[in-house]
C-alpha cells in the first residue's frame, strides 16, 4: 500500500512501449515527406525559379481566386450559418448535413457535379449562358466557384458554432437599445464572433488555395487562366521537377503561416 502511494506520488508510470513506437512512427510519417521536399530544394536557384512566367501566373491566379472564393463564401456562407444557428426552420438538421457534404465528397466528384449543373449545357449553366453569354467552366469564374464549393463548409460550421455558443441576451440588449436586426448583426453579433469568423475565413482561404480536384475537373488546367498553384505543381512534376519543388515549398510556407495565425485557436487546446 505504502509502495503504491509512493510510486503514484513520483508519477513515473511509463506509457506502454507499443504506443510510444506507433505514435513515433505516426509523427515520422507526417514529417518525412516534408523533409524529402526540403532535401530536393535547390536553394540557390530558388529566386530564378519563382520568377518564371508559369510560376508567377499560377501565384497570381491562386491569390486572386482564393481571395475571391473566401469573399464569396463570406457573403453567402455567413448568412447560411446565421440561418442554421438562429432560425428554427423545418429540415434544419438535413440542411446542416448537406452543408457538410463538400467536406466529405471527393473533390473530383464535386467538380463533376459543378460541371453538370453549371456547364454550358447544365441545368443552371445552360439558361445562364443563353441569357448572359457567360461561360463558367474553364474560366477564372470556374476556379472561384470550385474553390468556394469545397471551402465554404469550413466557414459555415465555424461561424454557426460561434453563433450557437453566443449568449443571445447580448443581441436582446442591442435590440432594447433601439438597434434593428441589421444593426444588431453588424454592431453586436459579428464583432462578438469576430475571432471565430476570422479563423473560419483563414481556414476557408487555405482550403481554397489548396483546391485541386474540383478545379481541374470544372475549370481545367490552362496556364494563366485556370492553372492555380496546385495544378502548376502537378504539371511541373512531369516537365520540370525544380519548379514543382519550388512551388511546393511556397505552399508549405503558406500552410505554416496559416498555422501560426490560428495558433491561439488550435495549438492552445493541444
Amino acid at each position: 500500500m505504502s509502495d503504491g502511494t509512493a510510486s503514484r506520488r513520483r508519477g513515473t508510470r511509463r506509457p506502454p512501449i507499443l504506443l510510444v513506437m506507433l505514435g513515433g512512427f505516426g509523427l515520422l510519417f507526417l514529417l518525412i515527406p516534408l523533409m524529402g521536399l526540403l532535401g530536393e530544394v535547390a536553394w540557390s536557384d530558388l529566386p530564378e525559379l519563382l520568377g518564371r512566367p508559369v510560376v508567377v501566373d499560377a501565384m497570381r491566379l491562386s491569390l486572386l481566386s482564393s481571395v475571391a472564393a473566401t469573399l464569396l463564401a463570406a457573403v453567402i456562407g455567413v448568412p447560411l450559418a446565421w440561418l442554421l444557428a438562429k432560425v428554427d426552420f423545418p429540415g434544419r438538421s438535413l440542411v446542416r448535413g448537406l452543408v457538410l457534404l463538400p467536406l466529405v465528397l471527393p473533390p473530383v466528384v464535386g467538380g463533376a457535379a459543378l460541371l453538370f449543373a453549371l456547364g454550358r449545357r447544365g441545368v443552371v449553366g445552360g439558361p445562364l449562358h443563353d441569357l448572359t453569354g457567360l461561360v463558367l467552366p474553364f474560366s477564372i469564374w470556374g476556379v472561384v466557384i470550385a474553390a468556394t464549393f469545397v471551402s465554404m463548409p469550413f466557414l459555415v460550421i465555424t461561424v454557426e458554432g460561434a453563433l450557437t455558443a453566443l449568449d443571445d441576451r447580448y443581441e436582446w440588449a442591442g435590440a432594447t437599445l433601439g438597434a434593428g436586426r441589421w444593426t444588431v448583426l453588424r454592431r453586436v453579433t459579428l464583432p462578438l464572433i469576430a475571432p471565430s469568423l476570422g479563423a473560419g475565413l483563414i481556414l476557408t482561404w487555405a482550403r481554397a488555395l489548396g483546391e485541386f480536384g474540383a478545379t481541374i475537373t470544372f475549370a481545367g488546367n490552362l496556364q494563366g487562366r485556370t492553372q492555380t498553384l496546385p495544378l502548376a505543381v502537378f504539371v511541373a512534376l512531369e516537365s520540370d521537377r525544380a519548379i514543382a519543388v519550388a512551388l511546393s515549398l511556397l505552399m508549405v510556407l503558406v500552410a505554416l503561416a496559416v498555422l501560426i495565425l490560428l495558433r491561439n485557436r488550435w495549438l492552445r487546446s493541444l
Partner: peptide
Amino acid sequence: ERRNIGVVFQDYLLF
C-alpha cells in the same frame, strides 16, 4: 428596438 424600454440586464451584458 421600437419599444423604447430601458433594460438593465442581470450581469449587465455590457458589450
